[in-house]
């Protein structure tokens, strides 16, 4: 069962990647001009003074931290869904206590203005 369940996924991956390559192939065959056009970046006509690739000012950085905490928690939540009836009340109490603590963290981050950046 295990291996056969993943077989179609592999086939599908091959089909889609093949389709993407085919599309590129069709493009090569029918495009008007084969040589690629090299040009500057567009921001309305004029060009920037530096290469735009830079250390981008990510002002939502605190949000990423809060997100990471929750994302880790989600790793536990997926398997948890399967054992709730077996383990019983304690599973639910523990999980939502955990979530409650995280939500308290969200409340604190909110009060500190982590979710606003303009």
């Amino acid at each position: 069962m295990r291996s056969t369940a993943w077989e179609p996924v592999a086939v599908l991956l091959a089909v889609v990647v093949g389709g993407v390559l085919l599309l590129h192939g069709v493009g090569v065959a029918v495009r008007a001009v084969r040589e690629p056009l090299t040009t500057g970046p567009f921001s309305g006509g004029f060009e920037p003074r530096e290469h735009p690739v830079s250390r981008f000012h990510v002002r939502w950085y605190p949000v990423t931290m809060v997100f990471l905490a929750f994302d880790m928690e989600m790793l536990f939540m997926y398997p948890w869904t399967k054992v709730v009836p077996e383990v019983g009340t304690s599973a639910v109490v523990e999980m939502f206590l955990f979530l409650g603590i995280l939500l308290a963290g969200v409340g604190y981050a909110w009060r500190e203005g982590a979710f606003r950046w303009t």
Binding site: S43, G44, G45, P48, R49, E50, H51
Partner: peptide, 26 residues
């Protein structure tokens, strides 16, 4: 073209600054 250099920002940090002209064809 040079790479971006750092400059003070409004939140008191020093971060990469780009000079980007916007328009007229946006």
């Amino acid at each position: 073209l040079p790479m971006a250099e750092r400059a003070d920002d409004r939140d008191g940090l020093r971060l990469d600054r780009l000079h980007v002209p916007l328009g007229p064809a946006l």
